[in-house]
């Protein structure tokens, strides 16, 4: 069944899954400016793809897949989009309060920072795993086998653990 047929559906879907957009953008951006650009690009791409959404899949899974696909291949230098009528709005998520709050939790900040040091694909697997997706769901999002997810996940977690222990 198709649900993605109007902007209100889209805005509701986005409002309930904004955390995914933020987390992915935050994990793949190099700095604050590129984070805002990336959030914008993910949201644009979600909107452009929304009419293709098929609710046989969980909305969160679908959003994660698009957010990861946009983020892994994203470069600020590549901003060549041509907006036909007017510039795109900048501030789509209010992120300042979140960042202030997160900065009060050094361990969370450290975890975020160390996740960013992982390779792009390992980073995706770790985030999905920490977000509670099971191995089959991760395999569907990534397009790899469940066995491969299991191997990759344990390796990435081991790396993350080592980084966490040695990082001062």
């Amino acid at each position: 069944m198709h649900v993605g047929n109007n902007s209100e559906d889209f805005l509701n879907a986005l409002a309930s899954h904004k955390g995914i957009v933020y987390k992915v953008a935050n994990s793949y951006s190099r700095n604050d400016a590129s984070k805002k650009d990336l959030i914008q690009e993910i949201i644009v791409q979600l909107w452009l793809s929304f009419d293709k959404y098929d609710d046989d899949y969980k909305l969160s899974t679908w959003i994660y897949r698009i957010a990861l696909n946009v983020s892994i291949s994203y470069y600020r230098k590549e901003k060549r989009r041509r907006v036909i009528s007017q510039p795109l709005p900048d501030e789509l998520l209010h992120i300042d309060t979140v960042e202030k709050e997160v900065s009060k939790q050094p361990e969370v900040e450290k975890l975020q920072r160390l996740i960013k040091e992982l390779k792009e694909l390992d980073r995706a697997i770790i985030m999905l795993s920490l977000d509670g997706y099971d191995q089959q769901e991760i395999a569907d999002i990534m397009g790899i086998s469940v066995t491969n997810v299991s191997t990759r996940k344990s390796r990435a977690k081991k790396k993350l653990r080592q980084k966490f222990e040695t990082d001062t």
């Binding site: 690009e41 452009l48 989009r81 969370v108 920490l130």
Partner: peptide
């Protein structure tokens, strides 16, 4: 991660006006 999620839940908000603007613009993907 759960505590991070909780912070997001409590503090992250969508700028609906701007997000709605995106849906009304003719825009191409990169």
């Amino acid at each position: 991660w759960k505590s991070y999620d909780k912070k997001l839940e409590e503090n992250l908000s969508l700028n609906k006006k701007n997000a709605r603007d995106i849906t009304s613009l003719k825009v191409q993907s990169l």
